[in-house]
Design a protein around this nucleic acid. Sequence first.
RNA 1: GAUCUGGUAGCUCAGCUGGUAGAGCAAUACACUUUUAAUGUAUGGGCCCUGGGUUCGAAUCCCAGCCAGAUCACCA
Length: 528
Amino acid sequence: MLMLCLIKPNSIFAPSIKKGSATMQKELSEQELVRRDNLKKLQELGIDPFPSDTFDVNTKAIDIKSRYTEESKEFESVKLAGRLMSKRIMGKASFAELMDSSGRIQIYLNRDEICPEEDKTMYNEVFKKLLDLGDFIGIEGFAFTTQVGEISVHVTKFTVLSKSLRPLPVVKTDAEGNVHDSFSDPELRYRMRYVDMVVNPDVRRVFEQRTTMYNTIRTYLNEKGYLEVETPILQPLYGGAAARPFKTHHNTLDMTLYLRIANELYLKRLIVGGYDGVYEFSKDFRNEGMSRFHNPEFTQIELYVAYKDYEWMMNLVEEMVELIAIALHGTTKVQVGENVLDFQRPWKRYTMYEAIKEYTGVDISEMDESQLREAAKSLKVHVDNSLGKGKIIDEIFGEHVEHKLIQPTFITDYPVEMSPLAKKHKSKPGLVERFEAICNAKEICNAFSELNDPIDQRERFESQLELGKRGDDEAMVLDEDFLRSLEFGMPPTAGLGIGMDRLAMIMTNQSSIQDVLFFPQMKPEKQE
RNA sequence: GAUCUGGUAGCUCAGCUGGUAGAGCAAUACACUUUUAAUGUAUGGGCCCUGGGUUCGAAUCCCAGCCAGAUCACCA
């Protein structure tokens, strides 16, 4: 093909570099060559394909589409910018679609209006041939309605703003709203999220909703007077959760550092230091398996409030999550998969024992360890001998209760063995003042009345150390500085952690954590 | 980590019991001044994931590997 001959190896538009070079690119496809050739031709016409000038738009596509009427004078002179997403050329006139951050709008171009003089190059060459789908252009013109009734922009002038050298997937939607040839390969979507976002506009909506979620929480907590803080991500000791950490090394200090698995112990130090309430959106890192619910790095918000307990915190969670649902959906009801979850307060509350009794008919509240073991067997829950009382209860709960909890539900009062940082229950021996909120069969938050008795805390750490010695690689390590801070005195405090990714999945109705993370962790692409 | 499914054109996918590599969209050329999944005619485009094996012959069968998804186990 003639086009191919125009690209000589020594051209600056050629694939670049010799074989074996680190920067060697894959051989260019036919369509990439065409685009590079079009770029060159634009330059030959004196058109800069990558101009630096500001292009000041005065309108978004959605403004015109939502407000334009035949009578309105509002859109008599509009200026928009975005990507060219389709072209329908009909000789001396053309329709096309421009997509800006708000969406797509149809544009209309007429040869003799674009080129009133003799020279028809801008229409015949630049628009019809040298502009490719995906290119950024700016347009000026006026809004109108086509004969078929589609609100469009009649273009009087267009400007090349940036050339696209790779073809985007072309996704089309027909009159019935059916999407054709959708860009759907999950691997490609996650590896090239920028393409996913261009071509699948709902993807951007999800992330906008995620940000709305964050903003709602920030506003809510700031209005209560709590302080947003930042604490170390690189920690000499990892703590605050049961998980395996990522390990790294600081060269100058010549010491091992860990990426945080939680920020709990640091935030509590800040309560010791005198704040009434602190919170942090905390990127945490856990060196564990990956699945559609687990990414190696994920985000939690943790919140600590002095002079409060877990009952108080339950009310806060209800109120805050209800607000999020309303902020995103205008209602407390949220469609998640096949279910509609209603976040309206108050949520159901069960103690763990009540929940197990409700869903299995077995009352385990008075059982000792051997009775529990028997009960587990009769419920077909597999428990091996290394499991202690708390773990057995947790297994029964996980097996028989958790997956049935679709509507938002609080589960309270957990066994002490599972909660080394929570305060012992004021009236129920063997339990701690802790709750989790479960919805759509998944835990979305974990909270407790924080253990502030330094002597008790030391003992709990020590029993964790025992677990570690027995081979539990998720057991907590003893943090002397944290204990020292508690010895100076920490007020009674309620603490909360919410898994932001999990919450985002529910609030945006996504079934995979990868769909609420811009760049989910992937194995490296193989080298060409 | 285990099991299952998949990897073919820029994108979405066909390709049977082994016999010359296919479609739609996208691209290229021409036509077309209100189309809208625009249309019509013509054309080009492939390391069939990688490496072995079986075979006269492999996209197809076998083995190993890489990557992804789903399910399961641990964790949020």
